[in-house]
């Protein structure tokens, strides 16, 4: 069985097109039964010790699949997993068609200069709501950046876009408020450094998060404590 599986990756990668080298994986586009499909390959990182590499790569592939399923069960948009090859560490995923990362989307809104405050606010609200649901399910994403959120475009004019969360490689399951707080802290820093002058927007995101999550007050309290931790020890 495992042998059969390990053959899947070379077969699909042979006619796949590399579309991105992400933070840790190569992402290819190909087709599966006539449907567009993404192959996310966690290739060996030769800079790190083989034993460490194998451990991390395997753990992340497992975690990514597990958390995507858990999120989808909770009604959070994440790509469908078609299948997984644990030998070559490839995940075969539904392609989110004509999508843009939230990072690129915010950047283009900010660049266009025109008064699109509403669109930015919609994005902040959506992120806040989705994270609230995710954290209430005890899924810690572990790598919350605006590169790991996709917006489907091309819906009818005036329609607000649909948001999809991806890249669950660093995710894990935890009910601890400090884990959720660090998750938000990581997002806050990534968000503010990537998108200058968005402090108010991020505040709004947090407000929406707090209003949408049942267990938010302990999380927000932890979030406020993390920077103090950093400052006092650094």
């Amino acid at each position: 069985m495992t042998q059969e599986k390990s053959l899947a990756a070379p077969h699909f990668l042979s006619n796949a097109v590399l579309i991105k080298q992400g933070a840790e994986a190569r992402v290819y586009r190909t087709e599966f039964l006539g449907k567009p499909m993404i192959v996310k390959e966690r290739f060996p990182k030769r800079y790190r010790h083989p034993a460490l590499d194998e451990k991390l790569t395997h753990r992340r592939t497992v975690q990514e699949v597990r958390s995507i399923l858990r999120c989808r069960k909770a009604g959070i948009c994440a790509p469908v997993v078609y299948f997984v090859d644990y030998i070559s560490h490839c995940i075969f995923l539904e392609e989110i068609m004509s999508s843009l990362t939230v990072r690129d989307h915010i950047a283009s809104i900010q660049q266009s200069g025109s008064c699109k405050e509403q669109e930015l606010e919609y994005i902040a609200d959506r992120v806040g709501q989705i994270l609230a649901t995710m954290h209430d399910e005890d899924v810690i994403h572990g790598d919350l950046t605006t590169s790991n959120m996709l917006l489907r475009c091309g819906l009818e004019d005036g329609d607000m876009e649909d948001m999809v969360i991806i890249d669950f490689g660093l995710s894990y399951i935890s009910a601890l408020p400090e884990d959720k707080g660090v998750d938000l802290y990581v997002l806050e820093k990534a968000f503010l450094s990537t998108h200058p002058n968005t402090e108010a927007l991020f505040e709004r995101l947090l407000k929406t998060y707090a209003a949408s999550s049942k267990k938010s007050s302990a999380v927000i309290k932890k979030l406020d404590e993390v920077p103090q931790l950093t400052l006092s020890r650094n």
Partner: peptide, 24 residues
């Protein structure tokens, strides 16, 4: 010894994208 940061320049600041959340 005192710092661990990943920094990139944009819009007139050296922005901190990643750092240690405890010790350097």
């Amino acid at each position: 010894g005192g710092n661990t940061q990943v920094i990139a320049y944009s819009e007139r600041r050296y922005r901190i994208f990643g750092e240690t959340i405890d010790i350097a």
